[in-house]
Design a protein around this nucleic acid. Sequence first.
DNA 1: CGCGACGTTGATTTGCCTCAACGATTGTGG
DNA 2: CCACAATCGTTGAGGCAAATCAACGTCGCG
Lengths: 195, 195
Amino acid sequence: MDHDLLKANFSRYTDLSPFELTAVCAFYKLKQIAKGEYLLRKGEICRFEGFVLKGCFRVFTIDEEGNERILYFAAEDWWIMEIDSFLNQTGSELNVQAIEDSSILYISWADKERLYREVPKMERLFRIMSQTAIVAWQRRLIRNHTMSAEQRYYQFLTAYPEVAVRLTNKQIASYLGITPEFVSKIRKKRLTHKK
Amino acid sequence: MDHDLLKANFSRYTDLSPFELTAVCAFYKLKQIAKGEYLLRKGEICRFEGFVLKGCFRVFTIDEEGNERILYFAAEDWWIMEIDSFLNQTGSELNVQAIEDSSILYISWADKERLYREVPKMERLFRIMSQTAIVAWQRRLIRNHTMSAEQRYYQFLTAYPEVAVRLTNKQIASYLGITPEFVSKIRKKRLTHKK
DNA sequence: CGCGACGTTGATTTGCCTCAACGATTGTGG
DNA sequence: CCACAATCGTTGAGGCAAATCAACGTCGCG
């Protein structure tokens, strides 16, 4: 069933009855996205919240010089939302692009508001989910301040091994805030030293 | 009235009737904290959520070598909570210390759960507040990846001028993830060049 | 008044970037 | 299915931003 992964995700945060779970999932619709396609471009208003069933996305900014910075990746069981743009229905700062053939479950802004109204527990669920996300962002910031590029590289590989193997070094470098060349040098170090 | 600032803060996120506002505020109790005192130490379980009425706090980590890293400051109209520790009632990763004589309004974990139950709108309010916070953390991370130390220094001064003047350069350096010596050199540059 | 934290300055070092060249992979149109 | 282009990954030389270390003046505070 398409919605099993979503149900499991919801159940991680709050108790919902099987009935509630089914009602909630009915709000989310399936969509296929081919590799390379954009779910959202900078400046557009984000009209959906998405949950990744299959594939992988990159969420990134483009600065005035055209440099891309990957903010995060979203693979199976992750949420993709440009929170600011979705919450306030304003122009997005971020781009969201599929880096594999992917499928998501998504909900529109109006339906999300209806969902909150009809199933008030969802407010609690997303409150807890959001607070958990804040903790993750705080920890990432601290890692950026305390760990070297090399440490952050291996920390990422060990924290998300199954995602990391699906990414290019250039993408990982962009996520970590370092250059692809330097990632290459980090990897060389281990290859010659050990093994 | 002690709770006016808190009421204004709540009203920024959702509509609450005067009656609701008063009921909600009744959950929050006043506490004075002298400069230098700790509200929370690493390893303790965070038993409160606090809202700063007066003064200023630093929220920081200590790594194994004893280095302190300031994650954020909380002055008037800001919330201080070790979300992870409060949410899951587990040992805190962070320390919270008053850097001025301060006063806060605080709520215990049990009362917060009661508040959510008695005033369901609070779930929504804290959901929106949390999502807004995520956006802020994301933007800060991008700034760290795209801006130089000097740019981040002046960005902080212009974004929070009234807080910045109350901090030592050492504290600002720690927040920005740079050394106090380098902050000193940044400031020298502007003093000699301009003015 | 004296001590300890803070701020400043300079000399030196270093982690990572920039630029450039080249091999390896991947994708694509004929 | 091959040929060629485009992108990616690797390597090296050189450069720069920021860290480190050390010395010294200053200020707040007990």
